[in-house]
Design a binder for these strands. Structure first.
Lengths: 112, 112
DNA sequence: AGGGAATATTCCTGTAAAGGAATGGCTGAA
DNA sequence: TTCAGCCATTCCTTTACAGGAATATTCCCT
Protein backbone atom coordinates (compact mmCIF):
# COMPACT_ATOMS: atom_id res chain seq x y z
CA UNK A 1 0.00 0.00 0.00
CA UNK A 2 1.69 3.20 1.06
CA UNK A 3 5.15 2.93 2.39
CA UNK A 4 4.41 5.23 5.24
CA UNK A 5 2.21 2.60 6.86
CA UNK A 6 4.94 0.02 6.38
CA UNK A 7 7.63 2.20 7.88
CA UNK A 8 5.48 3.32 10.77
CA UNK A 9 4.59 -0.25 11.59
CA UNK A 10 8.21 -1.38 11.49
CA UNK A 11 9.42 1.61 13.48
CA UNK A 12 8.25 0.00 16.69
CA UNK A 13 10.86 -2.39 18.12
CA UNK A 14 8.40 -5.04 19.26
CA UNK A 15 6.66 -5.04 15.92
CA UNK A 16 9.95 -5.28 14.09
CA UNK A 17 10.77 -8.22 16.30
CA UNK A 18 7.45 -9.86 15.49
CA UNK A 19 8.14 -9.50 11.80
CA UNK A 20 11.55 -11.07 12.24
CA UNK A 21 9.96 -13.87 14.17
CA UNK A 22 7.45 -14.54 11.43
CA UNK A 23 10.22 -14.62 8.88
CA UNK A 24 10.91 -18.15 10.01
CA UNK A 25 7.32 -19.25 9.72
CA UNK A 26 3.75 -18.60 10.87
CA UNK A 27 2.94 -18.47 14.56
CA UNK A 28 -0.11 -18.20 16.79
CA UNK A 29 -0.46 -15.16 19.02
CA UNK A 30 0.43 -16.98 22.20
CA UNK A 31 3.74 -18.20 20.86
CA UNK A 32 4.70 -14.72 19.81
CA UNK A 33 3.85 -13.37 23.24
CA UNK A 34 5.92 -16.12 24.79
CA UNK A 35 9.02 -15.64 22.72
CA UNK A 36 9.00 -11.89 22.97
CA UNK A 37 8.11 -11.82 26.66
CA UNK A 38 5.11 -9.63 25.98
CA UNK A 39 1.57 -9.64 27.27
CA UNK A 40 -0.93 -11.20 24.95
CA UNK A 41 -3.06 -8.05 24.58
CA UNK A 42 -0.05 -6.01 23.48
CA UNK A 43 0.83 -8.63 20.94
CA UNK A 44 -2.70 -8.60 19.59
CA UNK A 45 -2.56 -4.84 19.31
CA UNK A 46 0.75 -4.91 17.52
CA UNK A 47 -0.52 -7.58 15.20
CA UNK A 48 -3.48 -5.41 14.41
CA UNK A 49 -1.20 -2.59 13.35
CA UNK A 50 0.91 -4.96 11.28
CA UNK A 51 -2.22 -6.36 9.71
CA UNK A 52 -3.56 -2.93 8.86
CA UNK A 53 -0.26 -2.19 7.22
CA UNK A 54 -0.57 -5.37 5.21
CA UNK A 55 2.54 -6.83 6.77
CA UNK A 56 0.91 -9.92 8.18
CA UNK A 57 -1.96 -12.16 7.26
CA UNK A 58 -4.08 -14.29 9.53
CA UNK A 59 -5.77 -17.62 9.32
CA UNK A 60 -7.97 -18.97 12.09
CA UNK A 61 -7.21 -22.47 13.22
CA UNK A 62 -9.62 -23.74 15.81
CA UNK A 63 -9.09 -21.80 18.94
CA UNK A 64 -6.16 -19.89 17.62
CA UNK A 65 -5.19 -17.41 14.98
CA UNK A 66 -2.14 -18.16 12.98
CA UNK A 67 -0.29 -15.11 11.77
CA UNK A 68 2.03 -15.22 8.83
CA UNK A 69 4.29 -12.75 7.17
CA UNK A 70 3.00 -10.92 4.12
CA UNK A 71 5.87 -9.93 1.92
CA UNK A 72 4.29 -7.44 -0.47
CA UNK A 73 4.98 -4.37 1.66
CA UNK A 74 8.54 -5.51 2.18
CA UNK A 75 8.95 -5.95 -1.51
CA UNK A 76 7.72 -2.43 -2.07
CA UNK A 77 10.16 -1.17 0.50
CA UNK A 78 12.84 -3.10 -1.32
CA UNK A 79 11.83 -1.48 -4.58
CA UNK A 80 11.96 1.94 -3.02
CA UNK A 81 15.41 1.25 -1.65
CA UNK A 82 16.33 0.18 -5.13
CA UNK A 83 16.03 3.74 -6.30
CA UNK A 84 18.80 4.60 -3.87
CA UNK A 85 21.10 1.81 -4.81
CA UNK A 86 22.44 3.81 -7.68
CA UNK A 87 23.43 6.47 -5.18
CA UNK A 88 25.66 4.26 -3.12
CA UNK A 89 26.89 2.44 -6.15
CA UNK A 90 27.81 5.70 -7.73
CA UNK A 91 31.51 6.11 -7.37
CA UNK A 92 31.60 9.85 -8.00
CA UNK A 93 30.23 10.99 -4.71
CA UNK A 94 32.26 8.63 -2.62
CA UNK A 95 35.37 9.23 -4.64
CA UNK A 96 35.06 12.91 -4.00
CA UNK A 97 34.64 12.35 -0.31
CA UNK A 98 37.58 10.02 -0.29
CA UNK A 99 39.81 12.49 -2.05
CA UNK A 100 38.89 15.24 0.32
CA UNK A 101 39.55 13.00 3.25
CA UNK A 102 42.88 12.03 1.78
CA UNK A 103 43.79 15.61 1.32
CA UNK A 104 43.06 16.66 4.87
CA UNK A 105 44.94 13.69 6.20
CA UNK A 106 47.88 14.31 3.91
CA UNK A 107 48.47 17.62 5.56
CA UNK A 108 49.11 16.06 8.91
CA UNK A 109 50.60 12.63 8.27
CA UNK A 110 51.51 11.94 11.88
CA UNK A 111 48.72 13.89 13.25
CA UNK A 112 45.99 12.98 15.57
CA UNK B 1 23.63 2.15 13.52
CA UNK B 2 20.41 0.67 14.80
CA UNK B 3 17.69 0.16 12.32
CA UNK B 4 15.09 1.41 14.70
CA UNK B 5 16.44 4.93 14.40
CA UNK B 6 16.44 4.61 10.64
CA UNK B 7 12.89 3.35 10.46
CA UNK B 8 11.59 5.89 12.94
CA UNK B 9 13.19 8.69 11.01
CA UNK B 10 11.77 7.51 7.70
CA UNK B 11 8.33 6.87 9.17
CA UNK B 12 7.53 10.56 9.00
CA UNK B 13 6.21 11.59 5.58
CA UNK B 14 8.03 14.91 5.42
CA UNK B 15 11.30 13.29 6.39
CA UNK B 16 10.82 10.55 3.84
CA UNK B 17 10.23 13.25 1.30
CA UNK B 18 13.40 15.05 2.33
CA UNK B 19 15.37 11.87 1.87
CA UNK B 20 13.91 11.39 -1.58
CA UNK B 21 14.77 14.96 -2.40
CA UNK B 22 18.37 14.48 -1.34
CA UNK B 23 18.62 11.38 -3.46
CA UNK B 24 19.10 13.67 -6.43
CA UNK B 25 21.81 15.69 -4.78
CA UNK B 26 22.74 17.87 -1.79
CA UNK B 27 20.60 20.86 -0.91
CA UNK B 28 20.64 23.78 1.51
CA UNK B 29 17.89 24.03 4.10
CA UNK B 30 16.05 26.83 2.39
CA UNK B 31 15.69 24.93 -0.86
CA UNK B 32 14.25 21.95 0.95
CA UNK B 33 11.75 24.14 2.73
CA UNK B 34 10.80 25.69 -0.58
CA UNK B 35 10.27 22.50 -2.49
CA UNK B 36 8.33 20.79 0.27
CA UNK B 37 6.29 23.84 1.16
CA UNK B 38 7.40 23.66 4.76
CA UNK B 39 8.48 26.26 7.25
CA UNK B 40 12.20 26.51 7.68
CA UNK B 41 12.20 25.65 11.39
CA UNK B 42 10.30 22.43 10.76
CA UNK B 43 12.78 21.48 8.09
CA UNK B 44 15.66 22.13 10.45
CA UNK B 45 14.02 19.97 13.06
CA UNK B 46 13.43 17.15 10.63
CA UNK B 47 16.99 17.41 9.41
CA UNK B 48 18.17 17.13 12.96
CA UNK B 49 16.31 13.86 13.36
CA UNK B 50 17.65 12.57 10.08
CA UNK B 51 21.13 13.61 11.08
CA UNK B 52 20.87 11.88 14.44
CA UNK B 53 19.80 8.77 12.61
CA UNK B 54 22.83 9.07 10.38
CA UNK B 55 20.71 9.48 7.30
CA UNK B 56 22.10 12.84 6.27
CA UNK B 57 25.37 14.64 6.53
CA UNK B 58 26.01 18.37 6.59
CA UNK B 59 28.63 20.66 5.27
CA UNK B 60 28.62 24.38 6.01
CA UNK B 61 29.09 26.64 3.03
CA UNK B 62 29.32 30.27 3.96
CA UNK B 63 25.97 31.35 5.20
CA UNK B 64 24.29 28.06 4.48
CA UNK B 65 24.33 24.43 5.45
CA UNK B 66 24.34 21.93 2.68
CA UNK B 67 22.71 18.65 3.55
CA UNK B 68 23.51 15.48 1.70
CA UNK B 69 22.21 11.97 1.82
CA UNK B 70 24.16 9.41 3.83
CA UNK B 71 23.59 5.96 2.44
CA UNK B 72 24.96 3.72 5.15
CA UNK B 73 21.69 3.38 7.08
CA UNK B 74 19.86 2.68 3.85
CA UNK B 75 22.37 0.02 3.01
CA UNK B 76 21.81 -1.58 6.37
CA UNK B 77 18.09 -1.50 5.80
CA UNK B 78 18.73 -3.09 2.45
CA UNK B 79 20.76 -5.82 4.08
CA UNK B 80 18.02 -6.46 6.59
CA UNK B 81 15.47 -6.74 3.83
CA UNK B 82 17.83 -9.16 2.17
CA UNK B 83 17.12 -11.68 4.89
CA UNK B 84 13.50 -11.63 3.79
CA UNK B 85 14.14 -12.02 0.12
CA UNK B 86 14.35 -15.75 0.48
CA UNK B 87 10.86 -15.69 1.96
CA UNK B 88 9.18 -14.12 -1.02
CA UNK B 89 11.27 -16.15 -3.35
CA UNK B 90 10.21 -19.28 -1.58
CA UNK B 91 7.36 -20.92 -3.42
CA UNK B 92 6.23 -23.22 -0.58
CA UNK B 93 3.25 -22.28 1.43
CA UNK B 94 4.54 -22.62 4.92
CA UNK B 95 1.20 -21.89 6.47
CA UNK B 96 -0.29 -24.96 4.91
CA UNK B 97 2.49 -27.08 6.30
CA UNK B 98 2.02 -25.63 9.72
CA UNK B 99 -1.70 -26.23 9.77
CA UNK B 100 -1.25 -29.83 8.78
CA UNK B 101 1.28 -30.26 11.50
CA UNK B 102 -1.12 -28.75 14.00
CA UNK B 103 -3.84 -31.06 12.91
CA UNK B 104 -1.84 -34.20 13.23
CA UNK B 105 -0.66 -33.20 16.68
CA UNK B 106 -4.18 -32.45 17.80
CA UNK B 107 -5.39 -35.87 16.82
CA UNK B 108 -2.73 -37.87 18.52
CA UNK B 109 -3.15 -37.36 22.27
CA UNK B 110 -6.79 -38.36 22.62
CA UNK B 111 -7.28 -40.41 19.60
CA UNK B 112 -10.48 -40.08 17.66
C1' DA C 1 -25.74 -25.80 27.63
C1' DG C 2 -21.59 -24.81 30.45
C1' DG C 3 -16.69 -24.23 31.01
C1' DG C 4 -12.16 -23.22 29.75
C1' DA C 5 -8.59 -21.66 26.56
C1' DA C 6 -6.97 -18.39 23.13
C1' DT C 7 -7.47 -13.99 21.31
C1' DA C 8 -9.47 -9.21 20.51
C1' DT C 9 -11.10 -4.98 22.35
C1' DT C 10 -11.79 -1.18 25.49
C1' DC C 11 -10.62 2.22 28.97
C1' DC C 12 -7.15 4.73 31.19
C1' DT C 13 -2.71 7.02 31.70
C1' DG C 14 1.80 8.68 30.55
C1' DT C 15 4.88 10.10 27.12
C1' DA C 16 6.89 11.35 22.85
C1' DA C 17 6.70 13.85 18.84
C1' DA C 18 5.05 17.28 15.29
C1' DG C 19 3.66 22.00 14.00
C1' DG C 20 3.47 27.17 14.88
C1' DA C 21 5.56 31.33 16.54
C1' DA C 22 9.25 33.71 18.32
C1' DT C 23 14.00 34.13 19.13
C1' DG C 24 19.06 33.42 19.18
C1' DG C 25 23.48 32.62 16.67
C1' DC C 26 26.64 32.87 12.58
C1' DT C 27 28.39 34.49 8.43
C1' DG C 28 29.53 37.62 4.73
C1' DA C 29 29.18 42.41 3.12
C1' DA C 30 29.39 47.42 3.50
C1' DT D 1 30.84 47.62 13.64
C1' DT D 2 26.39 47.18 11.97
C1' DC D 3 23.13 45.09 8.85
C1' DA D 4 20.84 41.37 6.53
C1' DG D 5 20.26 36.64 5.30
C1' DC D 6 20.24 31.79 6.59
C1' DC D 7 19.63 28.51 9.87
C1' DA D 8 19.03 26.25 14.73
C1' DT D 9 16.71 26.24 19.00
C1' DT D 10 13.18 26.97 22.40
C1' DC D 11 8.53 27.25 24.23
C1' DC D 12 3.88 25.97 23.82
C1' DT D 13 -0.04 23.21 22.45
C1' DT D 14 -2.15 19.31 20.45
C1' DT D 15 -2.30 14.73 19.01
C1' DA D 16 -0.95 9.90 18.53
C1' DC D 17 0.53 5.90 20.41
C1' DA D 18 2.33 2.27 23.71
C1' DG D 19 1.62 -0.33 27.94
C1' DG D 20 -1.37 -2.18 31.86
C1' DA D 21 -5.60 -4.01 33.52
C1' DA D 22 -10.03 -5.56 32.84
C1' DT D 23 -13.49 -7.36 29.88
C1' DA D 24 -15.76 -9.25 25.70
C1' DT D 25 -15.71 -12.77 22.11
C1' DT D 26 -15.12 -17.02 19.87
C1' DC D 27 -14.12 -21.70 19.63
C1' DC D 28 -13.67 -26.48 21.23
C1' DC D 29 -14.88 -30.07 24.36
C1' DT D 30 -17.81 -32.62 27.50
Amino acid sequence: MNMNATLSALAEPNRLHIVELLRDGPLPVGDIADRLHLQQPQVSKHLRVLHDAGLVGMQPAANRRIYKLETRPLQELDAWLGSFRRVWEDRFDQLEDYLQELQSKAKKPDGD
